[in-house]
Design a protein around this nucleic acid. Structure first.
Lengths: 197, 197
DNA sequence: TATACTTGCGAGCGATTACTCACTTTTATA
DNA sequence: TATAAAAGTGAGTAATCGCTCGCAAGTATA
């Protein structure tokens, strides 16, 4: 063996996400991670100082992946409503293929104990909400979306709505097709945001 | 001492909810519960067979409290939209005063390990969604709400929206006034559900 | 090849925690 | 009042888990 640390770090992060998705955060012990990677448990601590640091890295990694996946819709061309529709679709698709994200995000223990993780999560959420807010203002400027709604507040609620759906999916152990929820979800958001006719 | 078990059970459940609200689920050890109640730790097991059983009882208890609190709006008189508005207000008010509920609900470890708890949670959620769906159908029948939206799906999404807001509140450690979110939240729901004019 | 650094591991420590057990005290009942 | 059941406790157990330590093996560089 003796791989370079960067590579091992990736393996450890991937193992963490895999295990979180399939077993839940609690069972992602350093031993379980080590087994999954194929190294001894103390070796894990050669690459991360603490267990929490692994989770922070995992959350950051998957957060970046999400943003990379959605960036095209945040700032693409075309009408704001269509882009928002596609954003919702892409987001649910991404999350349905990265179950570790909700598992980490919705585990109480993490942010209660790790200020670092809390920061990482807040950064992702704020960035996301900001982008959606901008899209809504674009839609309002183009006369596509209701002027009566506050863009920031609405963006916040759209995010909450998606989170709520994802949370249910996670709580109920992924037992429905998340990506398929994109259409009714968009129907609801469209009814709330778009001007009629 | 030597109180009747029913009374102690209540005290243990209340202590569990208090501690979950203030410290997070992970720190609700049987020792912490015992200290909070003022009994020895082994005594806890006189009243509940396992720690999980305590959580199940706590969730059920608070779920019943929520339903009792909302029952008036589910089946009261008056237009469906006003009742739904009041329901949202009452719900956020109740949850803001019972922080143990989101803490228990959004902790991953519980439902992953306890099928019983999962059942209890599902029962609460399904009952809630059913009632909201009925209200929406009433609103549609009265010409107040859009016919184009599916009542069941919309009820599900309204529930998800509220859950999303509450989850954020919980994730961010209760650092904003949840009850105050009722108005913008209702503004969004109304825009989605109500016919215009 | 000599040197320094990185990666790896076996063994084990210290702390935590749900739960048990043997035994006492209190409460309810015949 | 005698008896049984319920409620309570101190002491302890077994298991888990994050993390450390000392040492070996591999790797890069001069």
């Amino acid at each position: 063996m003796g791989k370079p640390s960067e590579q091992r770090k990736r393996e450890i992060i991937d193992a963490t996400l895999d295990l979180a998705a399939s077993l839940g955060v609690k069972k992602v012990t350093t031993q379980a991670i080590a087994d999954h990677v194929g190294i001894a448990q103390p070796t894990v601590f050669r690459h991360f100082k603490t267990r929490d640091a692994i989770f922070v890295a995992a959350i950051s990694s998957i957060g970046e992946g999400l943003f990379r996946n959605l960036a095209a819709f945040f700032s693409g061309i075309g009408p704001a409503d269509e882009r928002l529709h596609q954003l919702v679709q892409a987001q649910l698709r991404f999350i349905s293929q990265n179950r570790g994200l909700p598992r980490l995000l919705f585990s109480d223990r993490l942010h209660l104990e790790s200020p670092l993780l809390k920061q990482a999560v807040q950064k992702i959420m704020n960035g996301y909400t900001q982008q959606v807010s901008r899209m809504i203002r674009e839609g309002q400027a183009a006369g596509l979306m209701r002027q009566s709604l506050d863009a920031d507040e609405s963006a916040w609620l759209v995010a909450a709505l998606i989170q709520g759906v994802v949370m249910r999916w996670s709580i109920f152990d992924f037992d429905f097709d998340l990506a398929a929820e994109a259409e009714p979800l968009w129907g609801f958001i469209a009814a709330a945001l778009l001007v009629d006719g």
